[in-house]
Structures are given as C-alpha cells and as structure tokens.
Design a binder for these strands. Sequence first.
DNA 1: CTGGGGAAGGGGCCC
DNA 2: AGGGCCCCTTCCCCA
Length: 415
Amino acid sequence: MEISTHQSHLLQQLNEQRRQDVFCDCSILVEGKVFKAHRNVLFASSGYFKMLLSQNSKETSQPTTATFQAFSPDTFTVILDFVYSGKLSLTGQNVIEVMSAASFLQMTDVISVCKTFIKSSLDISEKEKRSLLHSPHSHLSPDQGAGVVSGKPWGKYSYSPASQRSTPLPVAKHEQRKESIKKTKNLRLSQPSEAVQYKSSKREARTSDPSSHVSQAEEQAQIDTEMDSASVGYQYGQGSDVTSRSFPDDLPRMRFKCPYCTHVVKRKADLKRHLRCHTGERPYPCQACGKRFSRLDHLSSHFRTIHQACKLICRKCKRHVTDLTGQVVQEGTRRYRLCNECLAEVGIDSLPIDLEAEQHLMSPSDGDKHSRWHLSEDENRSYVEIVEDGSADLVIQQVDDSEEEEEKEIKPNIR
DNA sequence: CTGGGGAAGGGGCCC
DNA sequence: AGGGCCCCTTCCCCA
C-alpha cells in the first residue's frame, strides 16, 4: 500500500527544517549570503553537489561549506526553493541565470524546464510578431515587429523555431555565406556542418544553431549532448578544496555560463549577446540588402563596407583612392570605389555618387527605427513585405546581382 | 592545390 | 544595459 502524499509531505518537512535551520549540515555561501541546507537533499538533487559531497563524504562530522560566485543569491534562492519544493519560480528576467546556474550545478531537470520556458516564450514572441507583421495595416519593419512583442520580458527575443519558419530566418553560417554570395549555386539545404565534430565553441555554436536544417529532435539531442558535455566541463576544483570541507571557490570571476555550450562570460549582456549565436536571432536587418545580423556593430560594419564604400581602395587595382583620384560606383545595393584609371578601363563615364549627401540617410546607428536606405516610401514598403514573406531569397538576389554581374559589366548608378 | 583577401561573426572590453 | 571598437578566427572566393 502506498500513501501518495508521503513524498510531498516529506519534502515539506525537509523544507520546514531548512527554513528553521534544523539538522542543516551544509552552508552555501553565495556572494556573502548564507544558505542553509541538508547534504542529503543537495546530494540527491544536483550532480555537482553529488560529486562534491561524495568526495567529501568521509568528513560527515563537520558541517560543509560551499562558496559560489558563479551566480547570484537570488538565483540560488530559486534553485534551492525548487530543490525543497519541486516548484521552479522562473521569470523572463531570471531564466537565463537560473539555467546557467542549473547547468553549473548539473540539475538536468531544471535545465529542461528552463529550456521549455525559453522555447515557449520564444514561440509566443514569434507568434505575436508574425501576427503583427501580417496585419494588413502593419508597415513595421521586421524588427519593429519584434520590438513590439513585448509586455513580456522575452519580447525582444525573437528566435523563430524551425517549425514556424516562413519569415526570413537566419540560415546557418555556412549556408548563409554560400547563398548570399552566389544564387547560381543551387540552394541545397543540407547542412555542411552536420558532419562536423564539436571541436570548438564556435563550431558548437554553429552546429547547434536552431536555424540549421537539422530536425528539431536532432537539434534537441544536440543541445542535450552539449549540455552534458558542458556539465562535465565544469567540475572545478575536484579534490582540492573539497577535502578541506569547502567547495571550490577558485572559479574564474566569470559569472554567466552559456546553457548551450561551455562558454562563460563575465557579464549578463555578453551572455545575452552570445546566446544569439545559438538561437539564430538576427534582430538587425540591413535596410539596403536585407541581410540580417545578430549584432548592431556587425551591421554597421557591413553597411560601411558594402553599401557606403568607406574603404578608400580601388576595388580593381587595390590602390588607394581619394575622391579626386577615384569614384564610388554603385552596383545594385553595393558600392565600392574605383580609381579613375580602372573606371576608364571598364568603360564607365564619370558618375560620382554624392556620399556625403547621403550619409545622413544611411547611418546604421539609427537601428531599425528609421529607414537608412534611400528608398521611396513605396520601395520601402515592398522591401519590408519581401523580407517578411520570406526568405533569404531577397538576400540572395540582392547581394547576388552585385557579385554576378561584376564580371560582365559594371553599371554605375546615376544619382 | 594553395595562399591571399574580403566578409562575416564571435569575444573582450571600454564608454 | 546597450553601443561600439578592436582583435581574432573562420569561411569562401579567386588568382
């Protein structure tokens, strides 16, 4: 005969004991805040504690002290409350850090819950985004849409799961590069990185990119695999501080561990930025060519290089050019400089582009709020529609016409 | 096949 | 926290 309430009752009792500091034989110090707990409970809940306490099991007569600097007291409160209640208090604000801490502590069930939380948040974000974008009155740029999806802490987090992919989604780096450069190459969707072993974090990031064409199940398996390996990678200080009744506190001063790979960063903002390489989120579209970037500075760099012809180098002969010795040539959305000699060679009459006059129109630093590209209102709208409906085709076509026609004939833009 | 160059992208870190 | 810069690596194309 089994009494179903026994387990929950037992847990409640243990939680009460913890709150009243009864039989607590373990102190966990997190950034100066002391948490009392029971070794047995910690041992049963966390792979990390299991490992440490098993090494420390001979010294049961004395209380154990653990020191952590890898997460905040608030985060550990959430973790510990879960351990003693089975309830995980997740919010959009704390989920990253809780997941990071859970990964550190090797609590796979917590990690799973966090992942589900994140995914569902992203699903909601994406649905809201799509509904906004497909609104007949919506002329928002894709990113304006994403920005509006909020009210939720994850509103900005606009990763689109593969199953919902109809908007232009980030393709894996390999694919993106290939496709964006040459449209003539057939659009094979196989993933070059599929066969790649996880040699580096960068490669891991790429292979675990949800935007790849790996099925979701495979993707999940991949993530789980990485998660496991990440846990293994975090067995800090085995056998040293442990034997002196303290958990290792010789961790690097880094505080945020990526739940998807072994990468650890010092700042939450850096982790947020890093996570985009896993989620495939690319919130910064180039207004000129539609290519999307995960970071504003990358967009800025791209824009300066590709669309503003900032480099004072002749693209043909590689010589240094100035406004006097060369001119800017526009080819599709791409701009570059040619020296006067090369211009004459390719048979282009002098058709300079007044870059300075256009600078104010195209400053990438304005983000998505303003159209930086010199499109008329109608052109702008059609651009947005194309981007929303779909797909990387736009990127391919636009970038392509510059690359492909380059060999044939350079057509300067008349402005 | 190989090396050079362009472009993209990731991390660290300063402001 | 976000923006931006610098540095580095990786990938791809091309000569």
